[in-house]
């Protein structure tokens, strides 16, 4: 290629300009390179591999065959998958609003400056987030025990008949409780950080106008941290759809209440690791990823549009 003599004379302005442009963009790529390599290796490549996997079916008898979109067709008709998806959607609809409301409440309380020992308060609410999810779930699992756990002790001490938190009817609520406990502090920190950067001049203006604390919250603070609210909501949506650790660990003490397809993620995991159905699991995972992306994107769009309004 390089052996071909250039048609355009050396001194041509066109040529020089183009070369400058080309080298500038190649410098850009060089700076971007390390990121792109890692991005492609750890993000793009696994996704492409998963898509590739999902187009095959591997059988104990007969080996691997190409089946096209067959796995996807099976997945959209799979009752187990939809039951799991419905379950995490219910979880999302109930747990996320409660958790975000509690986080917001804590952040506003901290930000009000009227709290005594606010550093201690902030740290202790945040602390559960520092506990690994596995440990947290084990801990709550002990407490939920109706025989030797905290629930059992309370029942015995006060002669109560608290229902079993690990029964099939209550297990989802029990998991929601664990997740809320884990993540209230994390979301609180996001909100609190957003509240701290609000310009004091806005508060002064509000004070001059004679606005009450409630009005300041509703009309100054909340609008100002809308971006943070949207981000926290998106994280929580993704977290709900990816629910895995808590049910996976609790399933040893509540094996019947938490089925192998309790959440879509747990289902994909069991499909591939208990049943060796890697291909089908890949299809389920991809469908789940697409659904999550659509919902997260919709929430973001809605959040942004409001943001853009005057």
């Amino acid at each position: 290629m390089t052996a071909v003599a250039p048609v355009v004379p050396e001194g041509s302005a066109v040529r020089r300009r183009r070369r400058v442009g080309a080298s500038r963009s190649s410098t850009g790529w060089a700076f971007l390179g390390p990121f792109m390599i890692v991005f492609v290796l750890v993000f793009i490549a696994p996704i492409i591999y998963a898509i590739y996997l999902s187009l095959f079916r591997d059988q104990l008898i007969g080996g691997s065959i190409f089946v096209g979109l067959d796995n996807y067709l099976v997945a959209v008709q799979d009752g187990n998958f939809w039951a799991g998806l419905t379950r995490v959607s219910l979880f999302l609809a109930v747990q996320v609003p409660i958790m975000l409301f509690l986080s917001l409440l804590a952040a506003l309380a901290l930000d009000s400056g009227r709290l005594y020992g606010s550093n201690f308060f902030r740290l202790s609410i945040f602390l559960p987030y520092a506990v690994p999810a596995v440990v947290a779930t084990l801990m709550w699992g002990f407490m939920y025990g109706t025989r030797f756990g905290l629930v059992g002790n309370i029942n015995e001490l006060f002669g109560l008949g608290l229902p079993n938190p690990l029964s099939p009817d209550l297990i989802l609520a029990s998991i929601a409780n664990i997740v809320t406990w884990e993540f209230v502090g994390y979301n609180m920190i996001i909100f609190y950080a957003a509240l701290r950067v609000i310009s004091p001049s806005l508060y002064e203006a509000a004070a001059i106008d004679g606005a009450s604390q409630l009005r300041v919250i509703l009309h100054v603070k909340l609008p100002a941290i809308r971006g943070a609210l949207v981000v926290a909501a998106i994280f929580s949506i993704i977290g709900s759809f990816q629910l895995f650790n808590e049910p996976s660990i609790l399933s040893t003490i509540a094996p019947n209440a938490i089925t192998s397809s309790f959440t879509p993620n747990l289902y994909a995991y069991n499909l591939s690791f208990s049943g060796g159905q890697y291909n089908y699991a890949a299809a389920v995972a991809i469908i789940m990823g697409v659904i999550t992306m659509i919902i997260a994107y919709a929430v973001q769009l809605r959040g942004m549009r409001k943001d853009g309004q005057p």
């Binding site: 699992g141 002990f142 025990g145 025989r147 030797f148 756990g149 040893t252 003490i253 509540a254 094996p255």
Partner: peptide
């Protein structure tokens, strides 16, 4: 009604 190999 307690699963085997658990703490309980």
């Amino acid at each position: 009604p307690v699963a085997g190999w658990t703490d309980e």
